[in-house]
Each structure stands twice: as C-alpha cells, then as structure tokens.
C-alpha cells in the first residue's frame, strides 16, 4: 500500500475502539485473513485489545485459539469514582474478571492500561491502583497521564468549571510515584508511559514490540477506518467515516483520507520528539545516517550541558532523557528542534 517491498510482519495489533464487541469468530477470521494475506513471522506478537465489561472468558479463549498471544486490557482504574469520571461502562470487578479470565484462557503476555491525573486523585489513591495492578503481575503496563485535548467533551467540561482539574504539581508527583513504584517492583520504563516486566536474561522481552514501531520510524500498515500507515517518508491515513471507508472499498478504491510526505526537517522533528520518549533514546549513528550529519559536531555542545543539569544520560552511542528529563520532554524536544543548527536555511 504505502510501501511496495515484500514485508515480513512481526506484530499484529487489533485495537483502537473495542474490538471485543465483535463476535469472537469474526476476530478469529480477521486474524486468519491477515495471516493468509501477509507474510508473518512465526513468533509474531499478536495483540487483541479488550475492554472490561465487553469481553467474556469464552471470547478470550477463542482469541487465544485463533493465534493471539497478547491481550491488552483497558482497565484505566480500579477505583469506581475514577471510572465514573472517565465515563467508562465497566466496574473494577469487571476489570478483575478480565485479568483473571485472560490468564485462564492461556495468555502469558498481558498488558494493562491505567490512567492517572484524574480529578480527586491523590498519591495514595494512585498508589492503590498501582498496587492492585501489580498484584496481577501483568507483563506490560501503560500508565497514561490524563490530558485535556481541545474540543473533547472532557476539556469542554473543564472549561465550564464542571470539575477541578488536579494541579500540575500533583500530576507530576503522580508521574514520579509511577516511576518509583514500578521500577522498584520489577518493571522497566521503556517509554514515557510504557512499562514492561523485566525478565532475567532478556530485560526487554515484554516490551510491546508493536508500540515501539511507532517511535522508531519503521514501516507499519494500518487497516480499518482512521488507521494510519507509515513508510518513511510517507504517512497516510484512512477515512474516519465507516460508511465512506466501506463505500471506497466496495468501489475498488483505497479508502485513503490523507497523506503526507515528510520533509527532512519534519522527519528530524519526529526523530527528536519520538526518540526522546524512549529509554533507548536517540542513537548518534542512526541519526547521522538518517540525516547525513555529524550530530556531535553540529550540536554536540548541547549534550554535556543537559547532562550536567541531570536532564539526559548519554554515552558514546546514544543519549536519552533521564527520569527528571522526561518531565521536560516537550521543552527539551523544542530546544533541539529550534537549535540554530537545525533551523531552516542553515546549511549543515
């Protein structure tokens, strides 16, 4: 579609929305169809995203039989008042049910999503959520800070004063609580919001292979309404309207709503803003290779400065944000991308 090269896929992710609303057999046939149509690695990571309250043990078993080997559960919180605030249909008990049922259905790789920064939350109540989550020993945890995206019902309600958002200070306390708690409980933070269980001998084993693709400019193919595909330097996305999506397919047209071809400067911005989210950070060598520059020569002076401030960690090969630095992700990204050496019109 975007790329023409014959690809060997090593991950498949069924998610976004609530795929478990479909009959388990439909999921089964989708996985089957995709595996027949595209070349897949034998040990491919195949994830199904499920929402508590909308999935049964029986469904989970069918997924497993169909070849899924990873389940990602949108738990969000074990606290009912938080679930109510977020407008979730499920209860804490539903979440516990799905966690147990997934294990029972045979899944050895379970991911669990939590949200923090919810009005009313305290360090204590957030810790209770984390403790509860860790009790189930999930292989993967994604802890997302609540954000108020413009024009969403949540940000409109906030503007209207329907609730008191948490102060920034508390939100950052929660962020630090997350890091401290999870890293002392056997998890590594491999991206700003993603944690995986450390496995002796193979620490990165339980990272989401799929998620990591989004941050490393490798190609991926998105199917379904709104899905994004990427093959550097091109990105394209499908129609959001389900009807339009279906119509286009019925008419033999690719249901593409838009595309962009990234300029070098855009690719560079993405390399910084995505690379800095990751524990692996940015490798000097791949950066130099991708952009034909000598990073250290161009803005190498910035690195020791940030290091001294405790914002980044660097070695000979790469640099990444420190725990403190992660709190300043946007500012540090901005600093790199606005650096005169990378400004428009400046020859490197």
């Amino acid at each position: 579609m975007v790329c023409t090269a014959p690809f060997l896929f090593d991950t498949l992710y069924l998610g976004g929305g609530t795929p478990s609303l479909l009959e388990a057999e439909v999921i089964d046939s989708i996985i089957d169809a995709v595996r027949n149509r595209f070349k897949f690695l034998k040990a491919a990571e195949i994830t199904v995203e499920v929402n508590p309250g909308a999935v049964t043990f029986g469904q989970l078993k069918t997924y497993h039989r169909a070849g899924a080997n990873r389940i990602n559960i949108g738990v969000q919180s074990f606290d009912q008042s938080n679930l109510d605030f977020l407008g979730r249909i499920h209860t804490a008990d539903d979440a516990i049910y799905v966690l147990n049922a997934s294990r029972k259905a045979g899944f050895e790789n379970i991911g669990l999503d939590l949200i923090y920064g919810i009005p009313g939350q305290t360090v204590t109540s957030w810790l209770a959520d984390l403790v509860k989550a860790v009790e189930f020993a999930p292989e993967h945890l994604a802890c997302y800070m609540l954000t108020y995206e413009p024009k969403t019902p949540l940000s409109i309600a906030r503007k209207k004063g329907r609730f008191n958002p948490l102060s920034k200070k508390i939100v950052f306390d929660l962020f630090e609580t997350t890091l401290t708690f999870l890293t002392t409980n056997g998890y590594e933070q491999y991206e700003i919001s993603n944690f995986s269980k450390k496995v002796i001998g193979s620490p990165g084993l339980r990272r989401s292979r799929h998620n990591q693709k989004y941050w490393s400019a490798v190609p991926y193919l998105g199917l379904g309404p709104s899905a994004h595909s990427f093959c550097s330097p091109k990105r394209q996305w499908n129609h959001r309207s389900v009807r339009r999506y279906i119509n286009d397919l019925n008419n033999g047209v690719l249901p593409i709503m838009g595309q962009e071809v990234l300029t070098r400067s855009q690719r560079m911005i993405e390399a910084f803003c995505l690379g800095l989210r990751r524990k692996n950070g940015i490798s000097f060598e791949s950066f130099n290779q991708a952009f034909g520059v000598d990073f250290e020569q161009v803005i190498g002076d910035v690195i020791p400065d940030l290091e001294e401030k405790g914002l980044i960690k660097a070695d000979q090969h790469h640099f990444a944000l420190s725990q403190k630095g992660l709190l300043f992700l946007d500012s540090i990204t901005e600093m790199f991308i606005t650096h005169p050496a990378f400004s428009a019109g400046t020859r490197l």
């Binding site: 920064g117 994604a142 997302y144 800070m145 954000t147 995206e149 920034k168 939100v171 700003i192 919001s193 998620n211 989004y214 941050w215 991926y220 998105g222 899905a227 994004h228 595909s229 990427f230 803003c273 995505l274 989210r277 992660l326 709190l327 300043f328 992700l329 946007d330 500012s331």
Partner: peptide
C-alpha cells in the same frame, strides 16, 4: 510537560 500518549 503533561505528556500525552503518542501512537500512529
């Protein structure tokens, strides 16, 4: 910064 998730 408040960090949002960042996927495709």
């Amino acid at each position: 910064d408040v960090t949002a998730k960042c996927y495709g």
